[in-house]
Structures are given as structure tokens and as C-alpha cells.
Design a protein around this nucleic acid. Structure first.
Lengths: 147, 147
DNA sequence: GTGATTGCAAACTATTTGCAAGAGA
DNA sequence: TCTCTTGCAAATAGTTTGCAATCAC
């Protein structure tokens, strides 16, 4: 694994990405980091996010929308992408660990990773738009994990 | 559902996308369509692909930060995205139907869709790069579906 | 005829890159 | 010291948009 030198910029980028619980785009993170390091440039943020993702320090989320997003939490978990605002939310679904273990069995050879992704509505948009579990009735299990 | 008028450009775009079995980008499809309709513009291809995806006639494959791809086959299936060349390949994995049925149980409420995506190497790149099933040994099931 | 669609070109957005100056080991 | 990294700005890549002309119904 590549050893990255410990610059102020890089350290603060990691710190802020780990601290916030959302999944910011490069420019969102740039604005956040700028509050601690006003002279940092957007290019530096992009370069570091790329490097850090290559090293496995952070996660690059490419499945979603137009803009790339980043996640400071590299533990395996699922994401829900909002169809309305494009945000990405961590999602815990009971029983999904079993599915993931099944998925892992497919890894090997040409396949290096498998991911489980969900699309729907984030908490905020669901509330604003009046999305309710009854919107797709008949799938009663759904309501058990949505809150 | 929106009713789209039947223009020559639109018809040929759908026909060609359904005919080819890969997952072209807008400009790849533009080049293909141009062989039948030399005066078509790239903008028209973009506009139609967007509309057709909105209508559910085709599938839009979005990977943030890279090029969008389109799929004329809207039946449920998995994709393998190549880490080397960025191409997207349909992938058939025995047993995946069971996983998908399990995934469907999560749908409802805020969650509208679940998808299973794989990353790794396409057939061509795997051959070129010498990627072999033994690359991640110990996961013996893997070789059973890779060819 | 009227609204939808087209070709063209310019605009826009996200991301990457070249380069000289500066920081880290 | 010497390489890696930074800030800046320009470049690039992919996509979207405005507009006048044209087409489908």
C-alpha cells in the first residue's frame, strides 16, 4: 500500500469527512474544510479524495447521481440514494448481512466487489413529499425497518 | 405515462440500442445511429435517451464521475462494471435470482428499488491483464460461473 | 395549425491537469 | 535536499440548453 505524507490539508480532509455523517460531494467537503483552512483549493480536495479512496482510507461512491460522493466510514454498509434530492443515506436493513455473505461468495476471478444499493427517498424528502409505507402496500415487511 | 411522438430519430435510437448487446454511452450510440441517419445531432441522442429512460423504455446506468451508459434491455439483470476500461457487461450469476427475491422484500415505504452491482474486470481486460480466478484464492465457488 | 422535436452551437458542470512555489521527511 | 503536495487557473469531458427551423399528428 502507498504511504501518503501527512500534510495539514490531507489530515483535515480526513478528519472532516470522518466527522460528518453525511456523504458529501467534493465541493461540499471543500466548503466544510475551508472553514478550518480558508486557503485550501478545490483541486487539492479532489486530489486527496482520489488518493485516499485509492488507499482504502475512505469510500468513493460512484453509483449515485451525477456527482461523486465520499464516505468516511469504510465499514461495509448499504446506501439509499434519494430520487428527489440526490443525497445518500446510510441504511441498516435487518437481514441484509445474510445477503451480503451470499454476495461475497461470488467474489473471485474477474469479480472484485459486489454492492447492494437502494434508491428511494431520504427521510427529509419522504416527509416533505408525503411518502408513506402504504405507498406500495402489500409488502408488509417494509414498514418494519423504516422509521 | 407520457406519450412520445414517433420521430425517425427516436425510432432508430431505440432500434439500435435494442439491437446492440453492449451498454453504449451517448456518444457511442450517436456514432452507431449516425450510420443510418448521418445528419442526427448528439444533442438529439442525449435528449431522446433521457426521455426514453424517463418513460421506462430503456435503462440509464449512472456511475457518478464517469460516463453514463444506456441499456436497451429493461428486464431485471445484474451488471459488472470494468475497473479497467469502464465498460459494463451483463452478468448472469447462478443463484442471484434468490438474492433478488430477498431484496424485493425490502421494497416499500421510502425504498423504491434495490440493485445488485458488481465491479471487476470485463472479459477482454481480464484476459489482457492476466486476471485469473486464482487471484483471490480460497473462494472456490467463484470459478464456477466465470468463463 | 400547433405543439413537440430537431440540428446547431454555445453554455454549463464536474473533474482533471500543468506548473511554479512551498512543505514534509 | 529532493520528492511529494499545494494553489491557481486553464483545460477537459460529458451533458444540457436556447433558438429558429422543421416535423408529427
Amino acid at each position: 500500500m502507498i504511504r501518503l505524507s501527512n500534510t495539514n490539508q490531507r489530515r483535515i480532509i480526513i478528519e472532516e469527512l470522518r466527522r460528518i455523517k453525511c456523504h458529501p460531494t467534493a465541493d461540499e467537503l471543500y466548503e466544510i474544510v475551508r472553514q478550518r483552512l480558508p486557503s485550501i483549493s478545490l483541486g487539492t480536495v479532489y486530489r486527496n479524495l482520489e488518493l485516499l479512496a485509492d488507499c482504502g482510507e475512505i469510500l468513493k461512491l460512484e453509483f449515485a447521481g451525477r456527482q461523486r460522493r465520499f464516505d468516511g466510514d469504510i465499514r461495509r454498509h448499504c446506501h439509499l440514494r434519494c430520487l428527489h434530492c440526490g443525497s445518500v443515506e446510510d441504511i441498516r436493513i435487518p437481514g441484509v448481512e445474510l445477503l451480503e455473505r451470499e454476495l461475497d461468495k461470488f467474489l473471485g476471478g474477474r469479480i472484485r466487489a459486489a454492492q447492494l444499493e437502494f434508491t428511494g427517498y431520504c427521510r427529509d424528502c419522504a416527509a416533505k413529499l408525503g411518502v408513506t409505507p402504504s405507498a406500495s402496500a402489500g409488502r408488509s415487511r417494509a414498514s418494519s425497518f423504516m422509521n
